[in-house]
Structures are given as C-alpha cells and as structure tokens.
C-alpha cells in the first residue's frame, strides 16, 4: 500500500513528528507526568481526538498495522474516519483485530483481549489534568504534582462515599502511576483501569486541546485510588452479552425494539465477534 503523495507520510511534517517523539520520550521517562508539547492544527475538530491522532502520526511506521476504536467499536463514524485518514496519508495496513494491530488508537475503552509486548495503545484525552475539577488554578495543580500533594483527590473520594455510600466515579477514575504521579486514565470506564496495571504494551496519551502528552511504559504499576475499607471495585453491568454470551466483558445496554425492551451487548465489537466466529 502507498500513501497519498499529496501529504508527508502520516500527514505531519518530519520536524513536528520529531518534536512529538521527543516529548514522548520525556513522557516515557517520567511515567504519568504530563509533558507540554506544541500541538498542531489537525484537519479534524477538537474532541475528535486530535491529540491521539498527532501521537499516532508520530509513531507510525510503514510496517505498522493500525486499529482505531471509539467506545470499543471499530465501526463508529469517528473510528472509521480516523482509520481512513491514516490509510490515506500513511498507507498503513488497518485492522479491526486487536491481536493483529501494532498500534491501537482508542477513545473511551481498552480492548478486552490482553495487549502484548510490542503493541502500543494511544488514548485520546479531552482533559489530562486529574485535579482539574478540584483545583481550577493550573499553577497550583502543577505544584501539587511536583510535591505529590494528592490529599485533595482523596477528599473527593471521601465526599463520594459520604454522599453515595461508595465512590461514584464510573469513568476517568484517577490512578497513581509508578507510585508517584496522579494521572487521568482518559474517560475509559473504571472497569478498564485494572488492565492498565503492569500492561505489557506501551500506553501513550495525547490531549490536543490542552497540548499535553503523558505515558505509561510497559509493566508499570497503575493503581486506582481508594480507601482501605472501601477498596476500588471495577463496576460492570450484571448481565450477559446477547450475541456472544460473555459474562466478563464490558457491556453496553441497547434498546432493541420500539417496545423499549433492552439487552446487553459487548462494547468491544472485535472481542464479541472473535467469540462467536469459531462456532459458525
């Protein structure tokens, strides 16, 4: 496959890609620490994952195989257009199979199939600062990170338990990386948090609007914040996938007729398909 000769390979110019790669190296060297970068305008609106796209563009090589998911699915408009974009401007192979991909760009999910060494997962991040709702002053949040002064985050968890009897945060549940930096895992469900811990694959995070990149190197500890007497529990709807019968995957609830009856299906479409294909 060859890429559209009207663009540089993977759209960004080589200078920009080098700058982003340098930022990525810094980010890998300080797991969980947000590194600012000179984000470029991309031919997509913010909110479409421009941060993730720039990271992907900077690390793609001609031999890579790219998978793009949005909410776990390969076939949503967002996922399809990003995949097509890279097929065109980089000419790389694309796939919907988690196992076949070398680079996976994602919004809101981590695939169910465990990732392996050599794979890279790129998260699209709308708001990289985990303390943002608690402390609106950015200079102050930087100081809190520098001093590992994270008591305030626990105050938030305390408030949740006092109010709801449990931690009510279901998405973007804050984690400690390498026992040092508090990090936003991006708006993935808390269900996916344990997958980040000691993951064999490299995890990269790109926030386009906020111009920040951060990373979790392979086999790094990623712990969801909790209390000793209120341990972290990854929540999952208590149901079974109507297509593949999975009881362990993250489920979406869908309305299936105009009577309003509902059913659960796997949010990870590739996982779901891989489970019923062999039986056909």
């Amino acid at each position: 496959m060859s890429h559209d000769p009207g663009y540089n390979f993977a759209y960004l110019d080589e200078g920009t890609k080098r700058m982003i790669r340098r930022t990525l190296l810094k980010a890998v060297a300080i797991p969980g620490h947000q590194v600012p970068f000179g984000a470029r305008e991309m031919p997509l609106p913010y909110g479409w994952g421009t941060g993730g796209i720039q990271v992907t563009a900077s690390i793609l090589g001609r031999d890579d195989t790219l998978k793009v998911i949005d909410q776990g699915a390969d076939d949503t408009t967002n996922a399809v257009s990003i995949r097509r974009f890279f097929a065109r401007v980089a000419g790389v192979r694309t796939t919907t199979r988690t196992a076949e991909a070398t680079v996976i760009q994602t919004r809101h999910r981590i695939p169910e199939a465990p990732l392996r060494e050599g794979q890279v997962i790129v998260y699209q991040v709308p708001m990289p600062e985990p303390l943002f709702r608690l402390e609106p002053r950015l200079a102050e949040t930087r100081r809190m990170h520098a001093l590992a002064d994270y008591g305030l985050m626990h105050v938030k968890l305390y408030e949740d338990i006092a109010r709801h009897g449990h931690v009510s945060t279901a998405y973007n549940y804050p984690v400690m990386v390498g026992g040092r930096y508090l990090m936003s895992p991006s708006p993935i469900p808390a269900f996916d948090n344990p997958k980040m811990d000691h993951m064999p694959a490299l995890q990269l995070f790109g926030a386009g609007r906020e111009k920040k990149i951060y990373a979790v190197p392979p086999y790094t500890s990623v712990r969801s914040l909790d209390f000793e007497d209120h341990p972290f529990r990854p929540h999952r709807a208590d149901g079974t996938c109507a297509f593949c019968g999975a009881r362990d995957s993250y489920l979406d609830e869908v309305v299936c007729d105009d009577q309003g009856s509902r059913m659960f299906i796997c949010s990870d479409t590739d996982y779901c398909e891989s489970r019923w294909e062999p039986e056909q």
């Binding site: 008591g151 000793e228 209120h230």
Partner: peptide, 8 residues
C-alpha cells in the same frame, strides 16, 4: 488524608 490516612 494529606498526611496519608487511607481508612475512610
């Protein structure tokens, strides 16, 4: 919590 208390 700032000085490390982690038992709700």
């Amino acid at each position: 919590m700032a000085i490390g208390a982690r038992h709700y």
